[in-house]
Design a binder for these strands. Structure first.
Lengths: 146, 146
DNA sequence: TTCCTGTTTAGAATTATTCTAAATCCATGT
DNA sequence: ACATGGATTTAGAATAATTCTAAACAGGAA
């Protein structure tokens, strides 16, 4: 089971499973996020989508993103005080925010890292999400990611 | 060495060390953050400060906060898409954001947790900050913190 | 005192996001 | 095929957090 969302076929299924419609707007937004995995912001997604579907509105992009996040097809990444970014990598992973370039890199984690981190919580705390984010600078092209 | 900022005396020193002036505004903002450690937002700080110094402006509160963060007297906490919060606990610690109440709790971490997390970074990545945040719900008063 | 630089202030500006209300779409029942 | 109703999209207004701007102010060095 690859936890990275793969295709628009998956999209249609996931949407209808949630009682939602696989509309052209949702498809193109999803496609754009899959295409270039650089953690784009809503605005960047808007620009990219417009070239394929010039009539789409920014509000729709926000709507679609909300829907995709809700269905678990896309993850939302909030780093420091900056526009929210979107990420189709559904693996448990951390993010590295490069202060120099502003780019966001995925950092894959050993299988049980998040599980271990959860154990650090005192009793009484029940986390449904764990976010691990680094900030700093990355060598120009650390491992070919973007 | 207690890494939690303790007093306004410490403030004055830290500021002058950085070539900045220990102004009344900076002092009162700092005092308010120390007083009630509930991770207040800039706006909440503004309200609290105004009762002691009614002429202060919101912009000044933002300025002072920026200064305090710069001097390392206060930490900035950004959780999901919400107003930035401020925290005088300078220990390495994580945050737990309670979805139900909106409250933020400090989670103290074993001494080397952050160091271990840093090791997970591929070569070429050099992090100067590591943020670990949980979201979920906490038992009504998990351990008397707020 | 005068000058200089750092600081504060009020209000305008910016930016990301959400809201609103009207238009449109689509599946369904007739 | 056709009307109905709920979901979706749209454009633009509204909101909220933060930053910017320009003018006033303050305090220390010359």
């Amino acid at each position: 089971m690859n936890s990275t969302a793969k295709s628009c076929a998956a999209l249609a299924k996931q949407l209808t499973d949630s009682g939602l419609r696989p509309t052209p707007q949702r498809e193109v937004v999803f496609k754009v996020i899959l295409e270039k995995r650089d953690h784009p912001t809503a605005d960047e997604i808007y620009v990219r989508v417009k070239s394929q579907m010039p009539t789409i509105s920014l509000a729709t992009v926000y709507n679609c993103l909300e829907t995709l996040v809700h269905c678990g097809l896309v993850r939302q990444v909030n780093l420091e005080r900056a526009p929210t970014r979107y990420c189709p990598n559904l693996h448990e992973h951390a993010h590295f925010h490069d202060d120099t370039t502003g780019q966001v890199h995925d950092i894959e984690l050993p299988a049980d890292t998040i599980k271990e981190l959860r154990k650090l919580l005192p009793i009484g705390f029940d986390a449904n999400t764990v976010e691990l984010a680094f900030r700093g600078r990355a060598a120009s092209d650390p491992h070919g990611s973007n």
